[in-house]
Design a protein around this nucleic acid. Structure first.
Lengths: 345, 345
DNA sequence: CTTAGCACTTGTATAGTTTGAGTGCTAAAA
DNA sequence: TTTTAGCACTCAAACTATACAAGTGCTAAG
């Protein structure tokens, strides 16, 4: 249990350290705190905080820095998100103000904006399409042997892929396949489609094609690609700014982590309704030991929930970042609502 | 004019320095050179080389390192490409041996292989499609308002893009447009298409559509995208390995250079038939001051010429790199010939 | 033309010194 | 019981001094 004063001190330690990067000492705190006590008193309180594992020293006679637990306590109990700078709000409004023609453009742009505002690395994920439904499938012959498969979901997402077919496949065969898929699978959610694809379809498709497997592979391919959550990343290079002492190896592994959609999905974890903060080694992944991750969902009503996140050093100014993330999720949700409203009407 | 012995010394200085990164002194050279002379003699020769601006000191009593001019002389007159390591050849063969279904897959894979072999950053460009011809155009209605435009070249390249149309555009209108384009433009080279697109087409298309501009924009868009040379990049992160003293800013500008297709095309320059080396500030771009670029074309007979390149530190082992690039361009050309032979038959 | 010898330069590494910010503890004051 | 002044102690960082190794240019002799 912390006293009011201890909380005040912990808050000040975190704020100071995240701003300056320098361990903070008792004297500096005494000067700065609103209450009037001597540095010796502060020292006693700091000893108590250290006892509880919330702050620690870098060496035996240094000032204190927050421990992971200290950050945790701060984030859970003490921090108050900064209100957004008017300037930052302008940036959001104008960057998001333009006319977009695809959801993905908005989401991708969002990653850029977020990384600019924070000067960290940002991730964005569009509203989940877990229960998006297949709304259309096309096979378009392109040349003698090439065919493009196109898949559309009811959310307006489009996935496509070109592939080769043996030359003796005729146009009406393709059409039959398309009709089959459209008849049987349209309207189902993507997971349902995948299931059905493995059970019923192969037998039926064999009526039209000698070797149905190739087709099904392709269809399955674009399908999983459509169903996969894909993250946009903004400000990749910002990692370079705060990678202490140019530890090239850990940087590399961090980058390869970021570029693997699966892994990053794993790291970001399940969306909770609130803004959540993961600090340093709270994350299982070793490459993230010195980083913190702020994730938040945004809610676009009946269109589902998406996710935004920023990745920065553990020593990041949480109050400012929480303010930015909080404000941005709102703006993004608004923008998307506008977008859907326009497109659905 | 250099004497035989001076050439020998210059060659040794470059070789030594590129291998070790340490300025090389007269004593080490005397020990290493095949001729039997004292270090004092070497010193005299080195003074002469320095006089001519081919080597320089890092400080008044240090050993010598090659100057840009020294590297140039070495590359132009002294270097002999190393024969490829058998091991390296294995890597190429097996990485390129698989079954590919698209040119782009081969080219993209090539960038990865090259970066692995060299542990630098590699660029690859597929055989130029300057005179690729438009072989097909499709407009596929996807939903109420979405349409996908697909463009195919005779080289088998496919570009596509989805866009929105106002709801009152009817299917037969689309078909008319497609027919128009296919009638008038198929068979022309892409530059010709672009030209005609600005002159003849707008008037004709106005017969079918109230607002033709939207369409033409889209078509122009996919067209330029198809005509644009697109580089594949392999081993981006390798830049981190040899970015001296973690100069974050120059690294960032280098990365943004790499990620801008236009810029990098500019840097790589016009394809010459040979392997060419650009050293440090010979390149106009400031971000490349401490880097060297080896570019080479590869020739796929009637299918045109493509390009490969590697970007590494100015102090790179040129003989080995030239060997790798030289061997790789051959292998890639062979592979592509195989590919085309299979596909054209 | 070559080379041994030598004085001189410079970066790097090591060890010692100083300084300053900070701590814990004690004992007196509140 | 809590606060505070005072003090001895610790440690990183900055600076200084010293030694060392690798290298150079130059001179004079071979």
């Amino acid at each position: 249990m912390l006293s009011e004063r201890q909380m005040m001190i912990l808050r000040a330690v975190v704020r100071d350290f995240t701003n300056t990067g320098v361990p903070v000492g008792s004297k500096a705190l005494a000067k700065q705190l609103p209450i009037h006590v001597s540095s010796a008193t502060i020292r006693n309180e700091m000893a108590a905080l250290e006892e509880q594992g919330l702050i620690k020293k870098t060496h035996s006679s240094s000032g204190r820095i927050p421990s992971v637990e200290g950050y945790r306590y701060y984030v859970d109990h003490l921090v108050k998100p900064d209100p957004l700078q008017p300037n930052d709000m302008d940036v959001i409004q104008s960057s998001l103000g333009g006319d977009f023609h695809k959801i993905d453009e908005i989401i991708s742009q969002s990653a850029t904006i977020l990384s600019n505002l924070t000067s960290y690395t940002a991730f964005t994920l569009k509203p989940e399409l877990k229960d998006a439904r297949l709304s259309g499938f096309r096979l378009v012959p392109l040349g003698r042997r090439q065919v493009m498969a196109i898949l559309v979901t009811d959310g307006g997402d489009v996935e496509n892929q070109t592939f080769d077919v043996s030359e003796d496949v005729k146009g009406d065969q393709l059409e039959a396949v398309v009709r089959l898929i459209n008849d049987q699978l349209v309207g189902l959610t993507l997971p349902e489609v995948i299931k059905k694809l493995q059970l019923d379809i192969p037998a039926q498709i064999a009526n039209y094609l000698q070797s149905p497997t190739g087709f099904l592979d392709i269809f399955g391919d674009v399908l999983t690609r459509a169903a996969q959550e894909r993250f946009y990343v903004g400000g990749r290079l910002n990692l370079l700014n705060f990678s202490q002492d140019s530890d090239v190896d850990s940087l590399k592994s961090l980058y390869s982590l970021i570029d693997q959609s699966d892994d990053i999905a794993n790291v970001l974890g399940q969306p909770s309704d609130n803004i959540s903060v993961q600090i340093g080694n709270e994350m299982t992944n070793d490459a993230l030991r010195n980083y913190s991750l702020i994730t938040a969902t945004y809610d676009v009503d009946q269109h589902g929930k998406g996710m935004i996140a920023i990745l920065g050093p553990t020593r990041m100014p949480y109050s400012r970042m929480l303010g930015i993330v909080g404000a941005f999720r709102e703006e993004l949700a608004k923008k998307l609502l506008d977008y859907y409203r326009f497109y659905d009407e």
